[in-house]
């Protein structure tokens, strides 16, 4: 937890705040169905199923989890509430993929490449620009040289918005203004980061619905041009998902991965009552880790995602 102390964040507290609501829902239901029983019946499994569905885990993933539980219940015959929670935790944790070592989530970790280029993608309104502002702040606070690229040149005032974040985080920003060619901005940003010896580059892109072919092609191009400046860039492509999004997040993840090889997920707006359960299925099916969670509007309100912590918190421990 060294990095957390450095950042001055009380992590557990924030994470708890974020997933408190989902925990309440799930635990209440499990608790209710288990109270006074020392083994699981079908009704309990049904309740579990409902709880998962209500958290946006989705029918497919829920059935997968329940199926495994059922098998274990059938085998072990006698299962207490604690055992059930333990199994459930294990099953969900197993579905959430781990970070790759060359793409560490910790802000003070060393990157194999310099500059380490991170491209942020997602549909409209999920919180890409805000996430970049927070990431910039946290990287900077951890002692990195950070640079921002305003490649969302499409949405009205998106450049202004990122600029305000760059001021808040006190990091330089490369911009060309509204309606500039986003690929050109991305190219400039990486080139300038290279010459200025930056550690981390965060490239913002315009929100786009994943079923718009031409916009997705544009994204592929933005990605391509960065690789021309720095080998292997972008080193990470983070897909931002809104925790309140339902099953469509799976289509989003599939489409973005098809076009730009998403390497990690950011789950935003977890400070509401939305549970964000869809990331379990997305992480599992696309084999990408959840890296960060957004838990508020302040610049510090971003946390490194921790599987165990997330699942534990889900069960109220």
């Amino acid at each position: 937890m060294g990095w957390l102390d450095k950042l001055g964040l009380k992590k557990e507290e924030k994470l708890d705040k974020g997933v408190e609501k989902s925990r309440e829902g799930l635990l209440n239901k499990i608790g209710k169905s288990i109270a006074g029983k020392d083994k699981i019946d079908d009704a309990t499994l049904d309740d579990l199923e409902d709880a998962l569905i209500s958290s946006d885990v989705g029918v497919k993933t829920t059935i997968e989890i329940i199926d495994r539980l059922e098998k274990r219940v059938a085998r072990d015959k006698f299962i207490t509430q604690n055992e059930l929670q333990q199994i459930m935790r294990e099953e969900i944790t197993a579905l959430l993929k781990e970070n790759r070592p060359d793409q560490p989530a910790e802000f003070d970790a060393d990157f194999p490449a310099k500059p380490h280029v991170i491209m942020i993608v997602g549909v409209n309104g999920v919180g890409k620009t805000t996430t970049i502002g927070k990431l910039a702040h946290l990287y900077k606070k951890a002692g990195k040289n950070v640079m921002l690229g305003a490649a969302d040149t499409f949405r009205a005032a998106a450049v202004d918005q990122l600029k305000i974040w760059s001021e808040r985080a006190d990091v330089p920003i490369i911009q060309q203004g509204q309606n500039a060619d986003p690929s050109a901005v991305a190219y400039d940003t990486v080139a300038s980061a290279k010459s200025r010896n930056a550690d981390v580059v965060l490239v913002d892109t315009a929100g786009r619905l994943h079923n718009k072919k031409s916009l997705m092609e544009e994204l592929a191009k933005i990605k391509r041009v960065m690789g021309k400046v720095v080998d292997g860039a972008p080193h990470e492509i983070l897909l931002v998902l809104d925790a309140s999004t339902g099953q469509n997040a799976m289509q989003q993840a599939n489409a973005f991965t098809d076009v730009v090889d998403v390497t990690g997920l950011v789950l935003t707006k977890l400070d509401g009552t939305a549970k964000g359960g869809i990331v379990i299925g997305v992480s599992n099916e696309l084999n990408v880790p959840v890296k960060y969670i957004g838990v508020g509007e302040q610049i510090e309100d971003l946390q490194v995602f921790e599987r165990d912590g997330f699942v534990k918190a889900l069960f109220g421990e």
Binding site: N124, G125, D242, G246, Q247, G272, T273
Partner: peptide, 28 residues
């Protein structure tokens, strides 16, 4: 947002209780 999941009922209820809105707009 038309992509909203299970939580839509909670937000709609809460907003309705606070501002008693007249209509809904589905975006995206």
């Amino acid at each position: 947002d038309a992509m909203t999941g299970q939580d839509a009922v909670n937000t709609a209820k809460a907003f309705n209780e606070t501002i008693d809105f007249d209509g809904v707009v589905l975006t995206k």
